[in-house]
């Protein structure tokens, strides 16, 4: 555990809670892509199956349980509790174009050809592109609420901090996981355009427009 890893995890946690609270307090999921949230629920489910097979630390177990719980709670709020406010017409990204190639790639390029490891790899690849339906939705409607931009910023910051964590771990522990690193770089790059807009526009104008 180093400072980048910890702040990355906390940034990730902040993003998840910001979104959950935003939907809960406003009683609305307008502007939020339910598809991205389903993808994140799939990401956490397939990645944290090791909760059943190995124990790493209390911190690790607690965070995994919180992430999974919040992901399903978010999906529940969007598709059940506040379904009437869900803007399905604008959430039109074709997720099969992500899930199918990512599934194929995880079977082809993985650390070990075993069910759990393939599912872990699938979750890493899927996470790197899971935000695309949300970004697509924002580009389609041309705007996002300020709180939604805070969510996206924390979510992007998390993977960027993980990149620094991997640099740290490579130098000080000789550790590197090529699959996680390449997917993490892809994931971070997808947020770059958003980061730029967030810093130059998001802080000063609202509602936020692309």
């Amino acid at each position: 555990m180093n400072v980048f890893r910890l702040t990355g995890d906390l940034s990730h946690l902040a993003a998840i809670i910001i979104l959950l609270l935003k939907i809960w307090k406003s009683r609305s999921c307008a502007g939020i892509s339910g598809k991205s949230q389903i993808l994140f629920a799939i990401v956490f489910t397939t990645r944290y199956l090791d909760l059943l097979t190995s124990f790493i630390s209390l911190y690790n177990t607690c965070m995994k349980v919180i992430y999974i719980g919040c992901a399903y709670a978010t999906v529940y709020l969007i598709y059940a509790k506040f379904r009437a406010t869900y803007d399905g017409n604008h959430d039109s990204f074709r997720v099969e174009f992500l899930v199918v190639p990512v599934g194929g790639l995880s079977v082809l390029i993985n650390h070990d050809f075993s069910p759990l490891e393939i599912l872990w790899t699938f979750s890493i690849y899927l996470e790197s592109v899971a935000i695309l339906p949300q970004l697509f939705m924002i580009s389609k409607t041309g705007e996002a609420e300020t709180i939604t931009t805070h969510y996206l910023f924390c979510l992007g910051l998390y993977r960027a901090l993980y990149l620094f964590n991997w640099i740290w771990r490579f130098y000080f522990e000789g550790f590197f996981d090529m699959i996680a690193i390449v997917a993490g770089v892809v994931q971070t790059v997808l947020y770059c355009d958003f980061f730029y807009l967030y810093v130059t526009k998001g802080w000063f104008s609202r509602p936020y427009r692309l």
């Binding site: 090791d50 190995s54 070990d112």
Partner: peptide, 10 residues
Amino acid sequence: GEVLTQHDEL
């Protein structure tokens, strides 16, 4: 042999 990869990150 079975390779068990442990992933310690979230």
